[in-house]
Design a binder for these strands. Structure first.
Length: 289
DNA sequence: ACACTATCCTGCAGGC
DNA sequence: TGCCTGCAGGATAGTG
């Protein structure tokens, strides 16, 4: 489900509940999601205070007071919601127990944070914070698109010599971290670049970014910032943690708009849909070259 | 090294 | 109405 803007929206929604708060108790309703939970997951979390909640790529990372990190990934259909209504006097668990609620974090403040994930492609794990950069999930992640290291030059280094289609290369988290199917399609349209083009074409023989790659860099940052501003995109599952919907889906120019007229001013093309790497790509053949 | 495919799982839309 | 197929915002292991 969630790409960088949705995960960042979730992080912002959870931040005030997590930061500085103590996890009193964890209800873990099954032994596994995408992966088995760590041994003693619930007991290791109980009593821990959360120092900060940050995001890297599509991961949420809770920094704990025992030098561990609680790493959370939402997969395709994961979501968090906050429930801070008082618990009933005789109820030890949440009053509202929805299908696919898998984990409930009970904070000392009385608030509960509930993780729900129908497809169970998401996961949670605990790892020593200092080891995270070397952890298999993080070690090979590409540049953070809204971070200080993002630049056309860094992307040029990641794309140089690659014959894979541009769409596929951008979807690869080792090239750039946090993009998914929607925002890759949207960024390519904004930059006027064909998803079918070889990725290495955007780099000169000397390894410098061509003008097109400078435009793409800007388009990626622009679309991600606008989407975060809108609270992410709500298609099927994504909601903000207070239950409200993001609204960036109304700003899609190409995603899920097959046969619609191209929104580029003056362009008379219409949106095509093609399959790439097993997913749908939406783009305008007329103005994306 | 690189680029596909199949795969994990549930829900939903569309066709018949 | 129901059954079937395919597709969905992710990411990896395995194959060629």
């Amino acid at each position: 489900m969630p790409e960088l803007p949705e995960v960042e929206t979730v992080r912002r929604g959870l931040e005030s509940v997590f930061t500085g708060s103590t996890i009193e108790r964890v209800e873990q309703k099954r032994a596994d999601l995408r992966f088995p939970f760590p041994e003693d997951f619930a007991s290791r979390l109980a009593g821990r205070r959360v120092l900060a909640l940050r995001r890297q790529a599509k991961y949420l990372i809770g920094e704990l007071d025992d030098a561990q990190a609680l790493v959370m990934h939402l997969g395709m259909s994961g979501s968090f919601r906050i429930d801070d209504a008082p618990l009933g006097r005789f109820h030890h668990t949440c009053l509202v127990n929805r299908a696919h609620d898998h984990v409930v974090l009970h904070f000392a403040s009385g608030a509960r944070v509930i993780y729900n994930d129908p497809r169970r492609f998401g996961f949670m794990l605990l790892a020593p914070r200092a080891d995270l950069p070397l952890h298999p999930l993080f070690a090979r992640l590409g540049v953070e698109p809204l971070g200080p290291d993002m630049s056309a030059e860094v992307l040029a280094a990641a794309l140089a010599g690659r014959k894979a289609p541009l769409k596929t290369a951008l979807l690869d988290q080792k090239t750039i971290a946090g993009l998914g199917n929607i925002y890759v399609c949207e960024a390519l349209h904004r930059a006027g670049l064909s998803p079918l083009r070889a990725a290495g074409d955007l780099v000169t023989a000397r390894g410098k970014p061509k003008r097109a790659l400078v435009d793409l860099t800007q388009a990626i940052q622009e679309v991600l910032r606008e989407a975060i501003e809108a609270g992410g995109s709500s298609l099927r599952d994504h909601r903000q943690t207070d239950g409200s919907l993001g609204y960036f889906q109304h700003s899609f120019r190409v995603y899920d708009r097959e046969d619609a007229p191209c929104p580029t001013p003056g362009c008379r093309g219409q949106i095509s849909r093609v399959g790439q790497a097993g997913r749908s790509t939406f783009f305008c053949r007329h103005c994306q070259k």
